Computed example of a mutant assay.
Amino acid sequence: MSESSESSESGESRRVVVVTGTRAEYGLLSSSMRAIEDRDDLTLDVVATGMHLSPQYGHTVDDIRADGFAIAREVHSLVDGDTGTAMAKSLGVCVAGMADALSSLDPDVVLVLGDRGEAFAAGVAAAHANVPVAHVHGGDSMAGAIVDDSIRHALTKFAHLHFPVTDRSAERIRRLGEEPWRITTVGAPGLDAVLAGEYDDSTTVRDRYDLPDDRSLALVVQHPLTSAPEQAGEQLAATLDAVGNLDDVDPVVVYPNADAGGRRMNAEIESREHLKAFRSLPREAYLGLMAAADVLVGNSSSGVIEAASLDLPVVDVGPRQEGRERADHTLRVPHDRAAIREAVERCLTDDGFRQRVADCENPYDHGGAGAAIAERLATVDLDGRLLRKRLTY
């Protein structure tokens, strides 16, 4: 335990390092970051890594700064390539960079989220330095995302505090042998901005991005499957063909993440003239697009989590989100043009289904996740008990 961790018990402000590697993950962490900054007993340091530092993915570290957050350290980690080998090499580079960054910052606790390699790298580096790790979105199940699920559950074993977003995820963490006192169910932090209405309204979104208001809007957000990166381009082609051939429907595409296969998807997007596509979007604009859209198509977690609270029908394409807890607002289909098209048409025209979407309850909505996370970080005892992990079986 660092000297700063010991002194924090005497009333001094605790230093929390938040690590973020992607635009989407930052959007989920931002409410916790605000809540940490708003407390006198916590001090925030932000470490940016991964896609945030790459011009190819929009250099979104600039968006974090534009939101008013200072960047304490930048850890460059992306190794060039579109394969699982490049992802593995990036993970190794990130672990080394995180070890240096955390050593210089000397935090009391490190906060990470989800199933990305950057979060895992930070968890490994922090745990080896005897710095407590707090993990958001542990215990989720995504049977279709093989590497992602493995990273998420492995990170649970490195983490000392768990912030699952549903009761079912909390139970999975307990079954992994984690002690119940370490677990606090907080709900999905990505819903904080949705519930507070902190996103652009439909008129603003349509005007800013030149979207007609007399046609249906289909938001397409599809990421590669790490288990089949060589198929990523043709899988996205099926989705874009299905949506693009519908009458009176305008597709709007957000570029995929940096996982293996992402470049194949980028090439597919760029091969299509007149397709409106964005490499990245500020969180308030992305949520605004979701609120303005008539349907979301793809395999983004936002389609499972945030969309349910925005009354947005979702066509969940392929197995990536398979096994993930969800409300009754999605239609699951394979990577098949006809199946995707039929599901999109149902989302747009089936009044009964649209009413079902409007009436569904979101299992991820527990209210105020960011504030709950900050409260726990400020009040948990930072002592030897926290660092000594014990299996319950």
Rank of each mutant, 00 (worst) to 15 (best):
L275F: 05
K276H: 11
A277W: 07
F278P: 09
R279P: 04
S280T: 15
L281E: 04
L281F: 08
P282F: 14
R283V: 15
E284F: 08
Y286M: 15
Y286S: 10
L287P: 02
L287W: 04
G288A: 08
G288F: 06
L289R: 03
L289S: 03
L289Q: 07
M290H: 03
M290D: 09
M290E: 13
A291E: 06
A291S: 14
A292R: 08
A292T: 09
A292Y: 05
A293L: 06
A293C: 06
D294I: 02
V295C: 06
V295N: 02
L296Y: 02
G298I: 12
N299R: 12
S301C: 05
S302N: 13
S302V: 10
G303T: 07
V304P: 00
A307G: 12
A307P: 02
A308N: 05
S309M: 10
S309L: 06
L310A: 09
D311Y: 03
D311S: 14
D311C: 05
D311T: 07
L312G: 02
L312E: 08
V314W: 04
V315N: 05
V315M: 09
D316H: 13
D316N: 15
P319Q: 15
Q321F: 01
E322P: 01
E322F: 14
G323Q: 07
G323C: 04
G323R: 09
R324V: 10
R324F: 08
E325N: 10
R326F: 00
R326T: 13
R326G: 07
R326L: 01
A327Y: 01
D328V: 03
T330S: 15
T330N: 12
L331Y: 01
R332P: 00
R332Q: 12
R332A: 14
V333S: 02
V333Y: 08
P334N: 06
H335G: 05
D336F: 11
R337I: 11
R337Q: 15
R337C: 04
A338K: 14
A339I: 08
I340H: 01
E342S: 12
A343D: 03
A343W: 09
A343S: 11
E345L: 13
R346N: 03
R346A: 10
L348G: 09
T349D: 13
T349R: 08
D351I: 03
D351T: 14
D351C: 02
D351M: 07
G352L: 04
G352C: 01
R354T: 05
Q355N: 11
R356D: 03
V357E: 00
A358G: 05
A358Q: 07
A358D: 02
A358S: 11
D359R: 03
C360G: 00
C360N: 10
C360L: 00
E361K: 10
E361R: 12
N362T: 01
N362D: 03
P363R: 03
Y364C: 11
Y364I: 10
Y364F: 15
Y364D: 05
D365V: 11
H366D: 09
H366E: 12
G367E: 14
G367P: 01
G368I: 10
G368D: 15
G370T: 05
A371Q: 13
I373D: 00
I373N: 01
I373G: 01
A374I: 04
E375M: 06
R376M: 09
A378I: 12
T379P: 05
T379A: 13
V380E: 14
V380M: 07
D381K: 08
D381R: 13
L382T: 03
G384H: 14
R388N: 07
K389A: 12
